[in-house]
Every structure is written in structure tokens, then in C-alpha cells.
Simulated scan of single mutants.
Amino acid sequence: MKRCTILAFIVLFLSTKLFAQSEEDKIKTVVTHLFSGMKTGDSALTRSAFAKNCIMQTIVNKNEKLSVRTEQIDDFIKFIGSPHKEKFDERIVFSKILIDGPLATVWTDYKFYIDDKFSHCGVNSFQLAKLDNRWQIVYLIDTRRKDNCSVLVK
């Protein structure tokens, strides 16, 4: 009887681990929803990745002068959902994910394509918070460049 109890406990423990989605997987799902929504023009899916007051920024290099440009999340969502014939395809690699309780940092290398034509590459840096028992992007900043992209995503 003792063996059966131990065996049942082990099976229950392993099956819970096998079917439970890790926090890292949940975070990856949120980030993936952002880019899947961009690619398909699904503004609701894209919006679902962001916290209500998310800050979205990009580092801009104009004439060798760097600055940080802030974009309004609602404008971005509206742009994604507006009819357009181009497909915006940002291909990412999850390079690093750090988690401390309700805070996560995600670093993704990316290449951006409009339809199948390469546009630019860079890195996304995400800050996520676990709010209302789900991960949400609260801050996003990226770099953009056209050179030194060969080491990044295909």
C-alpha cells in the first residue's frame, strides 16, 4: 500500500509539472501575442499583451545623434488594426528572460520584415508585471538598425 501511495504521488507530481505552464512560458506567450497580432493585423491580440498605461519607446539615430522617441500605445494599436496590405513581421529570438516574483525582464533580438522584404533589426527590451494574475508588458524600448544583422534571427 505504501508503494502505491508513493507511486501515485510521483505520477501526480510529474503530470502536474508536465501540464503546468511555467512563468517563463506565460511570459513568452504574452510577447508572442504582440508579434502575432502585428503580423495578422489583429489589434485585439496585440492589445492583450500590454498593460493599460504601457510606455513604448524606441532609440532613434538621426545623423549620428541618438534620442529616445516615445510612442503612444493607443496609436500603435490603432495602426496595427487599420487596414493595410503590408504584413509586418517581426521575427524574434528570446535571448534572456529574468523573473523576480511579479517582475520580468525580456531581451529579444529581432529582424523586422515588411511582407518578405527585410527592413531593419535590433533588440527589444521588455519589462513585464504580473497584474491581475497575468503577465502584461508595462514598458518596451527597442533599438533599430540596418547593419550588423546577420547574427540575429533568420
Rank of each mutant, 00 (worst) to 15 (best):
A44T: 10
F19R: 12
R69M: 08
F19A: 11
K26S: 08
Y113W: 04
S67A: 05
V11P: 05
I73A: 07
W135K: 06
G37D: 03
S15P: 09
F9T: 10
Q57W: 10
N63E: 04
G122Y: 06
Y113H: 06
K65E: 02
K52L: 11
T16K: 03
H84K: 09
F118Y: 02
K62N: 15
S15N: 07
C54A: 10
G122R: 06
K87I: 00
C54I: 08
D100H: 14
F94I: 04
V106W: 06
Q127H: 12
I55M: 11
N133R: 07
K26A: 12
F9A: 06
V31Y: 00
K146P: 13
K62H: 13
K85V: 03
G101K: 14
D89S: 13
P83R: 08
K52Q: 15
L14P: 04
T29R: 15
I6C: 09
P102F: 03
L7N: 01
P83E: 00
E23D: 11
T5P: 10
K111A: 09
F13G: 07
D142N: 12
S125N: 15
L18N: 14
K96V: 07
F13A: 02
Y139S: 08
L45V: 04
L7S: 10
E90G: 10
M56E: 13
N61V: 12
D132H: 09
L98M: 11
Q21Y: 01
V93W: 08
T40N: 06
I6A: 01
T40A: 10
A49K: 02
V11S: 05
K154E: 11
S125F: 10
H120G: 11
L128M: 01
E24Q: 09
D147H: 15
D74V: 14
I6K: 00
F13M: 05
M1L: 09
D132C: 13
V138I: 00
D142M: 05
R3E: 08
L14C: 11
S119E: 12
R69Y: 15
S43V: 11
Y110N: 12
C149V: 02
K117F: 04
D109W: 13
D132N: 13
S43P: 00
F88Y: 14
L14M: 10
D142I: 09
D42P: 11
I55A: 00
S22W: 00
G122C: 14
R144S: 11
R144Y: 14
V151W: 15
F112D: 04
K154F: 02
I6E: 04
G101H: 13
N133W: 01
K65C: 02
F112A: 08
R134W: 03
V68Q: 00
L140D: 06
R134K: 07
I55H: 13
I141A: 11
I27K: 03
D115R: 00
V93C: 12
